[in-house]
């Protein structure tokens, strides 16, 4: 589906994206014509004050929501208004998502959490678990693979969430403040992991961050304010 054989090629194009929603009775115009491009193997940071629409943009890029207007092109194919089936398949095979609060399933072990996207893609449990353990080992959690998610520390849980997002070698990895709840040491480690993953796998990484140090190390910075990109 998505071509990643040409590092530095445009993978994602976002055109005049607009989106609104309501929280309770409050109407929120979260995005007001956002446009940008992302290349394979590139790490992009989205920065801006709280409520400026960073996370909303990420959910739209992650195909978890549909924009009111505008277009999202993944490998030159419009996906913003694609069918549920196509979007679900893309989420499983081409997208990886890291949430701010790691969002693991506590009833499953670290290994099971990580292998879940592979299971879903139809890979046998044994093979999926083997690959999950291998990724966890790379992230320094090999000895904690069989622990239940809620028995891990905050940093460990976030690394498990990263492993889960990476397991399918997605072409686009979206991270919503992945270091937001981590100390500086863990933040640095997590960012290094993402950077290394982007370079090795030619994956485009988009991360929302409030950390200027991390943003500065990214290939591209998108600064947002009031639902618009003000400078990149």
């Amino acid at each position: 589906m998505v071509n990643r054989n040409n590092p530095g090629q445009t993978l994602l194009q976002v055109k005049r994206l607009e989106h609104s929603f309501t929280i309770g009775e409050e109407y929120v115009q979260a995005l007001r014509g956002v446009s940008f491009e992302v290349k394979t193997g590139e790490v992009t940071a989205i920065v801006g004050p709280s409520g400026c629409g960073k996370s909303t943009l990420l959910y739209l890029l992650g195909l978890l929501d549909r924009p009111d207007k505008g277009e999202i092109l993944l490998d030159n194919k419009s996906v913003s208004q694609a069918s549920d089936q196509v979007r679900t398949e893309l989420r499983n095979k081409n997208l990886g998502f890291i949430f701010q609060f790691h969002f693991l399933i506590k009833e499953l072990t670290a290994c099971e959490n990580v292998s879940m996207p592979l299971f879903k893609a139809g890979i046998q449990r044994k093979e999926a678990n083997k690959r999950a353990r291998s990724v966890l080992t790379k992230l320094g959690l090999g000895n904690k693979a069989e622990r239940f998610a809620n028995k891990l520390s905050g940093g460990e849980q976030q690394r498990v969430a990263i492993a889960r997002a990476m397991i399918n070698s997605p072409s686009l990895l979206l991270a919503d403040e992945p270091t937001g709840n981590l100390d500086s040491e863990n933040s640095r480690k997590v960012f290094q992991l993402l950077l290394q993953f982007a370079r090795e796998e030619s994956t485009a990484v988009i991360l929302v961050t409030h950390n200027p140090e991390i943003a500065e190390k990214c290939d591209q910075i998108l600064r947002m304010k009031d639902g618009q990109i003000v400078r990149d």
Binding site: L64, R91, K93, P117, K120
Partner: peptide
């Protein structure tokens, strides 16, 4: 609902 969101984000359909 949070688990449902996670599962949807990794490719689970509504039917799943």
């Amino acid at each position: 609902t949070r688990d449902i969101s996670i599962l949807r984000s990794i490719g689970f359909t509504r039917a799943d």
